[in-house]
Amino acid sequence: MDPILEIKNVSLQFGGVKALEDVSYHINRGEIFSLIGPNGAGKTSMLNCISGLYHPTSGSILYNGQEIINMKPYNRTALGIARAFQNIALFAHMSVLDNLKLGRHSLMNSGPLSGGLYVGKAAREEIEHRKKVEEVIEFLELQDIRHIPVGTLPYGLQKRVEVGRALALSPDLILLDEPMAGMNNAEKDIMSHFILEMHEVMDITVVLIEHDLGVVMNLSDHIAVLDFGRRIGFGTPAEIQENPDVIKAYIGEETVI
């Protein structure tokens, strides 16, 4: 398989606290990859290292074979890496459409003239970006709420818009940090459907942090398991379910999946 992302011996330390310790794994192009573990295991810290919000203390992160560990977050976005956050980071007073457009505009090369007017190359670029935003709205079935302020929407729809803002960047690799947190079962089913469609229809490689093990086992091609910042398991869902270290540290001795 062709790896899109390679994590090699990554460590992250804050003073005397080791958030990640010598973690290695790889993610194959076109798969759904899940990162699981107990609270405080280092999962979000790992996504922060991949997206560029944190700089690892040591190690290497290769994206399509290119070292990105010293690259700024916006440069990683330009390469095709997008991130949806665990805690919703939308502009509550702005509409769904404007939140998606704002995310997409980070890719614009031609800035607007004063007054928000676009001409020439900037106008053509604006049309293309708006087309991509409309595709995301259609994909996530947001047509009926496109002009509604995000802050007035139910939590499940806000999470969908958060994912949509990442999708608006047309990523090759999308990092989803607990996109189903706080959702009921029906909302989880809808989000699971969208994740599968990202993978199968849009050909996006998905990295998923999720605490619902049923969702993880059903969606994932491969899984890495962290505990106290160290990798204790890596493999297919079947291999993870049979890993004694994972069962002891996370799944539980008496749990049967």
Rank of each mutant, 00 (worst) to 15 (best):
L140F: 08
G151W: 03
I68L: 05
L102F: 11
G115H: 09
S60P: 00
L107E: 09
L79V: 00
D98C: 05
E125H: 10
A123K: 15
Y74I: 13
M71L: 15
G42D: 06
N109P: 08
E67P: 01
P73D: 08
N109D: 14
Y155H: 14
G164I: 09
L62Y: 02
S34I: 04
K101Y: 02
G37C: 06
G40Y: 09
D98G: 05
E67A: 07
L107A: 06
V136D: 05
F139Q: 08
N99C: 07
S106T: 14
Y118T: 12
S58W: 03
S106V: 12
M46G: 01
I68W: 02
L79A: 01
A92Y: 01
R165C: 02
I36N: 03
A166N: 04
F85K: 09
M46A: 08
E128N: 11
A168N: 04
E128T: 13
M94R: 07
F139S: 08
I81H: 03
S34E: 05
N109V: 14
V96A: 08
A41P: 09
H105I: 03
T44A: 11
E126S: 14
I137R: 02
N99D: 05
V96G: 04
H129Q: 11
E162V: 10
K43L: 12
S60N: 09
L142A: 06
A123W: 15
A123R: 15
N109G: 14
N75V: 11
L97H: 11
K131D: 10
N48M: 03
G52K: 02
A82F: 02
R124C: 10
S34H: 07
E67N: 09
L107Y: 15
A92E: 11
Y63Q: 01
E134V: 13
K159W: 08
E138C: 07
P149V: 13
A89G: 05
M71A: 09
D98P: 00
A84T: 14
L167I: 10
L175T: 10
I88P: 01
L102K: 04
I148K: 15
L140V: 12
N87Y: 10
R124P: 03
L153P: 00
I145F: 06
Y118L: 11
V161G: 08
I50E: 00
V161I: 14
I127W: 09
V136C: 06
S60D: 11
N99T: 01
N70H: 12
Y74H: 13
K72A: 15
S106P: 02
S95R: 09
S51H: 03
S110I: 10
L167Q: 06
Q86C: 07
Q66M: 04
G103L: 05
T77C: 11
K159R: 15
V96Y: 06
V133E: 11
F85E: 05
D144A: 09
E134R: 15
A123Y: 15
S110V: 11
Y74A: 05
H55A: 10
H93L: 07
